[in-house]
Amino acid sequence: MHKSLLIDPGKCTGCLQCEMACSLEHTGEFNPARSRIRVFEFEHGLNNVPYTCTQCTASYCMVACPVDAISISQLTGAREVADSICVGCRACVAACPYGTLNFNPETGKVDKCDLCGGDPKCAEVCPTDAIVYGYPQGDVPPGMFALPTDADSAPTEVH
């Protein structure tokens, strides 16, 4: 089973440390305009929503790529763009229904989240755990996936 980026907008304060860490990892400099994760802000900063590629099963980008530059990493499950093959045609950008691929005018290639090869920097720097790299079953509140345990059904009055 692959880990995923588990994003909880309720915890996000909009600090954008994720965008800076992502751009440093991929470009060697701090440059949120080149970040592959984006934080969208709504209503004067009330809501802040980090958003990036979900590495979706349908893989619309991979299907659309005419030169087979996009492949699935065995290690992480990430859909990765091979810069050496990408011709910058942007078919993937148009195909992605989630809008998480971006054409980079400086390189002439397309950028997307590659989960940093299994060590995503956005999750590493996030100060509020709004972005966590983990297994969904282990990182959501119990009740949604977890089976009830004896402790859950024990009467609280006993204490």
Partner: peptide, 17 residues
């Protein structure tokens, strides 16, 4: 008060919304 909010790059997040 609804929530707190960070400025750019800030891990304190003292802003009030």
């Amino acid at each position: 008060l609804l929530t707190n909010k960070a400025c750019f790059g800030c891990t304190i997040a003292c802003g009030r919304i």
